[in-house]
């Protein structure tokens, strides 16, 4: 019993529903949804829409963590790609803008991958380099100011919609489906888990662990770039100082809430996204509640602790023991 890994997702789904219920209690209109300018509008939609950037980061991050790595640079990569997109938006056609931003994300991922897989630097150190330097690069691109744009094409990534669903949600959903198809409909997922479980044994067994490691960092860079584009499109500008700031921690938290171990191995992309939604549902609830902002972080910490305890095998063992004692 104690060895059962929390992959079923029951604790996460329960936690998400519980937080939504609490939100509904603090704000009666929480589940009200209407159409506004052809786009769904409501607090529940906000949870998905605002959660999209962290969900995108979590999709990339969960694969990196599955290989026993970590990527601290995702927030900085967001800032770089957002800065590139916003700077080019008003002078270049949309395909060029998107290609440049995504290309920069892929390059950042490749850089991290090279440092980790080829040079053998510990992931936390290797990605720390880009975390620090990346924000500087973003500031260089924007010359330290908030670069605004008016291009409606790029703005679609933040304010547009697909059949009424906000564009960021649609983008995140597409990337999620694509990632799941890639890792679960092929042997990729198994190889990533093998790399994280025991890189040496996997390499001896013929798994290309080096290529696997590189690939997950590149994919993580790609997801971060998308998140950066969404964030820039949302405010119609690139804020190099603040875009994606500390979001790497939220992304890691989302992955952990989703039940993936930081020691690598088995992972769940869907639950990582659910983890991101749990974090955002909490944020939205706090904003709706009207509590003084001084409580924000405390409430967040308590909820995260409860969710993590719910997943802990020892803690559930203790609960079983207690319920047994009562009988």
């Amino acid at each position: 019993m104690a060895l059962r890994l929390p992959r079923s997702g029951v604790p996460q789904v329960l936690a998400f529903l519980a937080i939504l219920a609490v939100n509904w209690m603090v704000s009666a209109q929480f589940f009200d949804i209407r159409f506004q300018d052809g786009r769904l509008f409501g607090s529940l939609i906000d949870v998905f829409n605002r959660g999209a950037p962290v969900a995108l980061l979590a999709i990339g991050m969960v694969l990196v963590i599955a290989t026993r790595g970590i990527d601290l640079s995702v927030g900085a990569v967001m800032a770089i790609c957002g800065a590139i997109a916003a700077t080019l938006a008003d002078t270049q056609p949309l395909p060029v803008v998107i290609a440049a931003a995504l290309g920069a994300g892929l390059l950042c991922g490749l850089w991290n991958g090279l440092l980790v897989a080829v040079l053998g630097i510990q992931p936390i150190i290797a990605t720390l380099i880009l975390m620090v330097a990346g924000r500087g690069i973003a500031q260089l691109i924007t010359e330290g100011r908030i670069v605004t744009f008016t291009s409606p094409d790029l703005a679609w990534f933040g304010g547009g919609s697909v059949l009424g669903v906000p564009a960021p949600v649609a983008i995140t959903f597409t990337v999620l489906v694509l990632t799941i198809l890639l890792v679960r409909r092929t042997a990729l997922g198994l190889m990533i888990e093998a790399t994280g479980g025991n890189a040496r044994a996997s390499a001896l067994a013929g798994v290309g662990t080096r290529v696997m490691t590189m690939a997950v960092y590149v994919w993580c860079g790609f997801c971060s770039a998308l998140a950066g584009i969404v964030a820039a499109a949302d405010i119609l500008g690139a804020d190099a100082n603040n875009s994606g700031l500390w979001l790497e921690l939220d992304a890691i938290l989302a992955v952990v809430i989703g039940g993936t171990s930081l020691f690598g191995g088995r992972f769940s992309v869907v639950l990582a996204v659910l983890g991101a939604l749990i974090i955002q549902a909490m944020n939205t609830g706090i904003l709706l509640s009207g509590y003084p902002p001084e409580f924000n972080l405390v409430v967040k910490a308590v909820v995260v602790l409860v969710v993590l305890l719910m997943q802990s095998p020892r803690f559930s063992g203790l609960a079983i023991l207690l319920s047994g004692a009562r009988k």
């Binding site: 405010i235 500008g237 944020n283 904003l287």
Partner: peptide, 11 residues
């Protein structure tokens, strides 16, 4: 920040 200002105003 702009992003947080927007998110808070939405709520």
């Amino acid at each position: 920040t702009r992003a947080k200002g927007k998110e808070v105003m939405e709520s």
